[in-house]
Amino acid sequence: MGKLPINCEQTQEQLTEWLSNQLPDAEGAIMDAHLAQCPACQAEADSVRQLWQMMGQLPTPEPSPMARIRFQTMLDTYKETIADKPESALDNLLTKFREFFTPKLAVRLAYSVALVGVGILAGYWFNHATGPNVAYKQQIDTLSTQVQEMRQMMMLSLLENPAASERLRAVSYTEEINQVDSKVIDALLTTLNNDANVNVRLVTLEALAKLADNPTVREGLVQSITRQDSPLVQSALADVMVKLQEKRSIKPLRQLLHDDNTNHMVKGKIEQTIRDLS
C-alpha cells in the first residue's frame, strides 16, 4: 500500500530532510509532487534554501595577525616567571586551593552539595516515613528552593564568562530553572541584544521563545528586532514572531525591511513574515 499524499504541515516538518537529500526516494517523490502543486510550500522551500546558501557564504573569522605574537609573548613571560621564581610545593598547593574556590567554582560546589542534600533527605523520607512528615517535607522544599537559586546564580555568573562555550552553557540552565524571575529574563535579553557571538544569541533566542508566555519576554523580543545586525538572528527572530503570531513585530520588521544594511535574502524572509502576520 503506497504512502498517502502529505499536507502542508507535514511538508514543513520534512523540509529540512528534503533539502539535505535525506528523505527516502519514495517520500522525496511525494514531497516533489506536493511542492509542484502548492505555491505556499514552494515559496517556503525557496526561502529556506536561500537562507542555507547565505549561511554557507558567511565568511569564517580569521584570527588577528597579532594573535600568535601576543600568545608567544605571554608564553615567554610565563616561562621567565617560572624560571626566576620556582614555586614551592606549598605555594603550588595554595594556588590550586585558591583556584578551586573562585566564586564560580564555589557556586558549583554549593549547588552540588544542595543537590546531595535534597537526595539524602528525600531518600530518608521515602524509606523511613510511615506517614506524612511535615518537617522533612519542609526541609526538602527548602533545599529544592536553594537548588533553584544556585542554578540561577550559576547561570547569571556564567553569562559574564568571556568564553562563548560557558555562556552557551549558562543559557542551557534556563531549562532547569522552574520559575524564571526578572533577573534571569533581563540577563537573557541583554545577552540576545549584546553578545558578540552569534551562536550564543541564537541559543538565547531559542530559550526566550520558550518563555514567551511572559509579557516582558514578548516585549523584549519585539524590541530586539531592530537591535540585531546578524542575518541569522534577524531571520530566526522573524520565524519566532510568526510562531508567536506577534503582530506588534510588524512595525520593527518594516523598519528592518527599509534598512539599507539588511541582507537582501533576509528582506525576502521579512516580507513573507509580514504577510503571515498581517
Rank of each mutant, 00 (worst) to 15 (best):
T145S: 13
N133H: 08
T130E: 03
N178T: 14
E13K: 10
Q148W: 05
T174R: 00
V266G: 03
R70L: 13
V184K: 00
E176T: 10
P252I: 02
V203D: 05
V222K: 00
A122T: 15
K79N: 11
L90S: 06
I82A: 13
I6W: 04
K104Q: 11
L19I: 14
P231K: 01
R167F: 03
M155N: 00
M1S: 15
I69F: 10
I82Q: 14
N92G: 10
K79L: 13
V180S: 01
D276Y: 07
N133T: 08
D25R: 07
E175V: 13
E17L: 15
I30Q: 02
D239S: 10
D32M: 08
A29D: 10
L221Q: 02
A209Q: 07
L143W: 04
A163I: 09
Q42E: 10
K269Y: 04
D25I: 13
D213P: 01
M153D: 10
L159H: 02
L4R: 13
T130Q: 07
M1C: 14
Q14V: 10
T204L: 03
P215I: 11
I120E: 05
K251P: 02
D276M: 14
V180Q: 01
G2M: 09
R68S: 12
V240E: 01
A110G: 06
G119R: 14
Q22T: 11
Q10K: 12
R275P: 00
Q245T: 11
H128P: 03
S64Q: 06
V116T: 04
L189H: 00
A26S: 08
K104M: 11
I82E: 14
P162W: 03
K3G: 08
N161E: 05
A163Q: 10
A129I: 01
M74S: 15
S144F: 12
H258F: 09
L221C: 06
K247L: 12
A135E: 14
L109C: 12
T142C: 07
S230Q: 00
P103E: 05
Q272S: 15
R254D: 06
M265V: 10
Q14I: 12
T77F: 13
V200I: 09
T262Q: 02
G28S: 14
R108V: 09
L159M: 14
T262K: 05
F126M: 13
W125H: 12
L58Y: 08
L192T: 00
L205I: 05
N197V: 15
D181F: 02
V198L: 02
L188N: 00
K96V: 09
C41S: 12
Q53N: 08
R169Q: 11
V217E: 00
E80A: 14
I270K: 00
Q10H: 08
E206I: 09
P162C: 04
Y136C: 07
